[in-house]
Simulated assay, not measured.
Amino acid sequence: MKYGALFIKVALLFCFITGCTFMNEQQEISKPATTLIQRQLTSEGQGLNNRMLIIATGDMSGVYFSLGQKLSYMYEKYNGAVSGTRITDASIENTELVSRHRAEIGFTTVDVLDLPETDRSKLRALTALYSNYVQIVTTKQSNIDSLEDLVGKRISVGTTGSGTRLIAERILLETDLPPDQLNLSYLSFSQSAEALRNGTIDAAFFSSGIPNNDIAYMSKQTELSFIPIPEDIIERLQKQYGVYTHNEIPSNTYKGMKKSVKTISIKNVLVTYDEMSDLHAYNLVKTFYEHLPELQDTHPAASDISIIEATKQVPLDFHTGAMNYFTEQGIIENQ
């Protein structure tokens, strides 16, 4: 029995290092064990600590995941970091993982930072990113043209732990729709897309950079419609939370779109924990911006990332190491 238990532990450790994915953890590591060990031994003294640099991302079809994969590659290539990504339910889960030191970096929307369950005292911002657009998607055959048409419909509002669910529920609360007449599901982006295609749901909320990969793929197979968010709801959300911006999904974003769609956008931010060393945080941000074109080639949403906007619209204290870099670059005045 002892040898059996030891074998299981060794097997689990091997799978973790070599990138096996477990249903409960869903963690990806991008290099085999021998390479990881070698890099970990050689990364000391390069300004990064010698623990694995885990980046908490999101759904595999989302922008967080693709950018996280590229960041992991960049930090290995330019910083000698032992790095990997972790698939999560996105924003809310990511802030929890980072605050508990179970990930070094996480992607999140800024509206999550004011939630009671978010421990802001343990989090620090590294840089502002691009914006997420709320995209409420349905199919032409559903005959849904407005939020009022969602009464009695089957709606996916995103997974528990996601920024999508947060903003979807906030939008629905601002409507006059009776809650007991909304049939809600809590699906990931990919699950929502599949459910829309096979007709098991009627509409789905996506809070994502544009274009969202799942929506883009769906638009090539199915005629889609996008539900606009009324101006009065946008204004109420802006007044109540202060982090939402009136925006539009451009008409050329997805196949079949005939006109732009009114919506709201939310700024994304890259966060770390408060105890990360100043030098470590400085080097992460420095690499991020020195090689930003590589990141921007990964997804069109990243084209909106700019060092000029790096410290704006983020209701969270920035890490001292990040501030040092931005001060050097003339983005902020010396404190």
Rank of each mutant, 00 (worst) to 15 (best):
M1F: 09
M1V: 10
G4H: 12
L6S: 10
I8M: 12
G19Y: 06
C20Q: 04
F22I: 10
E25D: 11
Q26I: 13
I29S: 11
A33G: 03
A33L: 12
R39M: 08
Q40V: 08
Q40Y: 04
S43I: 05
S43H: 06
E44T: 13
G45Q: 01
N49T: 10
N50A: 05
L53F: 08
L53M: 14
L53I: 14
I54K: 12
I54E: 07
I55S: 05
I55N: 00
T57W: 05
G58C: 01
D59C: 03
D59H: 10
S61C: 01
F65Y: 15
F65V: 02
Q69T: 12
Y75G: 04
K77N: 05
V82I: 13
S83A: 15
R86S: 11
T88Y: 14
D89L: 08
E96A: 11
E96F: 08
S99P: 06
R102Y: 11
R102A: 00
G106C: 07
F107P: 01
V112C: 05
L115N: 05
P116F: 10
P116D: 05
D119M: 08
S121W: 08
S121V: 02
R124W: 10
Y130T: 03
Y130R: 07
V137R: 01
T138S: 14
T139C: 02
K140N: 12
Q141C: 00
I144A: 05
S146Y: 07
L147K: 03
L147W: 02
E148R: 07
R154P: 00
I155S: 09
T160F: 13
G161C: 06
G163T: 05
G163Q: 10
T164L: 00
L172C: 11
D176L: 13
D176Q: 15
L177N: 09
D180V: 09
L182Y: 09
L182S: 06
L184M: 07
L187M: 14
F189D: 02
S192A: 06
S192W: 10
E194C: 00
G199E: 00
G199R: 10
T200W: 12
A203C: 06
F206L: 03
S208E: 14
G209Q: 09
P211G: 12
N213I: 09
D214C: 10
S219D: 11
K220C: 00
I227G: 09
I227C: 10
I234H: 04
R236S: 00
L237W: 10
G242F: 14
V243D: 02
H246N: 04
P250W: 00
N252W: 01
T253P: 08
K255T: 14
K258S: 13
K259G: 06
V261T: 12
I266K: 10
V271E: 04
T272G: 13
E275Q: 12
H280M: 07
H280Q: 12
N283L: 11
V285Y: 03
V285D: 01
F288T: 03
H291A: 05
E294T: 14
L295F: 09
I305N: 05
S306W: 01
I307V: 14
I308H: 15
I308D: 11
E309P: 02
T311Y: 07
Q313N: 13
V314P: 01
D317H: 09
D317L: 08
F318P: 00
T320E: 14
T327C: 07
Q329A: 04
I331A: 02
E333A: 13
N334P: 04
